[in-house]
């Protein structure tokens, strides 16, 4: 019996949700395990980097990498996996677009470290100690990964073959992706393994969306009730669905929350944030700066709203000047 295809899974700057989504396959995971050999999965299996290094170049059929890339160690690991794998799949919003961790691109590294180690209410650090990359103590020398200035998407660091969007990707998409991989008939490089149609397509509330959208105010879900029957956007809550790929089954909408855009843009859009901004603001009702600004007060943090998952992969990538 020939060897089962070797699969590696790795996490970088991520929350663990993507790992969880693999477990979410439930009994289907057995099917996966029957058909592939997971040779590396730090969250679940005890393999070391040196185990990966042992493989020949491109011996691993596919590596599924989740999380954004923001440290030297992560770079080192993904480069290694790239070398050893035939196919690299950016798994999840963070690997594809930067995800939530990429919101750090709105700040400087120093600001973040200062806050976390000194200013955060929970920080107890009278000596203002910071983690250091190199540390010498008598005869021991330790090395810690260094934090980068910039959070990156996976493709900004290594060559990526496919993308599985989502925060996290739905198990349905994962299963389909695995089937595609096993079939051996691979889609063209660069394909995002999700429908190239926006979420409204599969949204259960699509029919309730009016054709005469005109915003007179914007509301935030934590302050107002959302009518569970009607299109959420039409109620004045920002829903990124129209600018976000479908494939999730409109889970958030099912849970009566607006889409926040984790599946990223369609293939025809370069910058999801700019595009949804363009769409939503065009339909504001005001005609003067004053009227318009008054309505826009309902969107206090446009970057956080429209680039929640896409900052690193956006056209500007990060805050350019401080």
């Amino acid at each position: 019996m020939p060897d089962k295809p070797k699969i590696a899974m790795y996490w970088c700057a991520s929350c663990g949700g993507c790992e969880e989504s693999v477990v979410d396959l439930a009994e289907d995971i057995l099917f996966v395990l029957d058909n592939v050999d997971i040779i590396f999965w730090p969250v679940a299996l005890d393999f070391k980097k040196s185990d990966v290094e042992k493989y020949k170049d491109v011996e691993i059929v596919a590596s599924l990498i989740n999380g954004a890339i923001r440290s030297t160690e992560q770079e080192e690991m993904v480069r290694l996996l790239r070398k050893k794998s035939k196919v690299i799949i950016a798994y999840g919003a963070c690997a594809q677009l930067g995800g939530i961790p990429a919101l750090a691109n709105e700040f400087q590294k120093e600001e973040i470290l200062r806050y976390v180690y000194e200013e955060a209410p929970s920080a107890v650090n009278p000596d203002k100690k910071r983690p250091q990359a190199q540390f010498k103590d008598d005869d021991r020398e330790t090395e810690l990964p260094e934090l980068w200035d910039t959070v990156r998407t996976l493709e900004q660091v290594i060559d990526v073959d496919y993308y599985l969007p989502g925060c996290p990707p739905s198990s349905k998409l994962l299963k389909e992706a695995v089937l595609v991989l096993l079939s051996g008939i691979l889609p063209s490089k660069g394909t995002v393994l999700a429908p190239d149609l926006a979420l409204c397509e599969e949204c259960p509330r699509k029919d309730t969306k009016p054709t005469d959208l005109s915003f007179t105010e914007f509301k935030r879900p934590n302050m107002h009730n959302i009518d569970p029957e009607k299109c959420i956007l039409s109620q004045g809550f920002i829903c990124i669905g129209p600018a976000t790929r479908s494939g999730c089954g409109a889970m958030c909408i099912e849970g009566n929350m607006p889409c926040t855009g984790c599946y990223g843009p369609t293939s025809r859009v370069k910058d999801q944030g700019a595009k949804i901004l363009s769409s939503i603001t065009s339909n504001i009702s005001g005609k003067t700066e004053k009227e318009i600004d008054a309505i826009l007060e309902g969107i206090p943090d446009p970057v956080g709203t429209f680039y929640r998952y896409g900052m690193a992969g956006s056209l500007l990538r990060k805050k350019v000047d401080f």
Binding site: L197, C200, K209, S246, S279, I280, N283
Partner: peptide, 12 residues
């Protein structure tokens, strides 16, 4: 084939 029917353009 690309249109999701989000209706955002209709009133514009």
């Amino acid at each position: 084939v690309d249109c999701s029917g989000c209706k955002s353009c209709v009133p514009l």
